[in-house]
Amino acid sequence: MQYRIDMSDNILTVSLAGEIDHHNIEPVREAVDGAILSRRPSLLILDFSKISFMDSSGFGFVMGRYKTMNSLGGQVIVRGSNKRIKMILELSGAGKYVTIE
């Protein structure tokens, strides 16, 4: 799983590529939390447009980052989700907490 973290204008953008499962997402989780806590953005954008597979670990990842961002008063947008990713996020109720585009 590859990822890139960019920060500009108080917006932290995390672009992910590959397959999100319980194994692959672990190192990304730590890196993103580290970036959130050190840079304290007001908005976190999770770009899923290059994700080819995602199971419910993706929902856990989104909700975990929502909790961190929420505790800092920030918001989360999930961008570039395909039909299937949207379905998993919506089914799990993530839409109540984060914006799914």
Partner: peptide, 22 residues
């Protein structure tokens, strides 16, 4: 049941069986 999980600290969604069913 959706959202039931025994994992507290970890980021588990409790959605595994619901997704399998769906």
């Amino acid at each position: 049941e959706p959202c039931f999980t025994t994992s507290e600290g970890e980021e588990r969604s409790g959605m595994g069986f619901t997704i399998m069913e769906t």
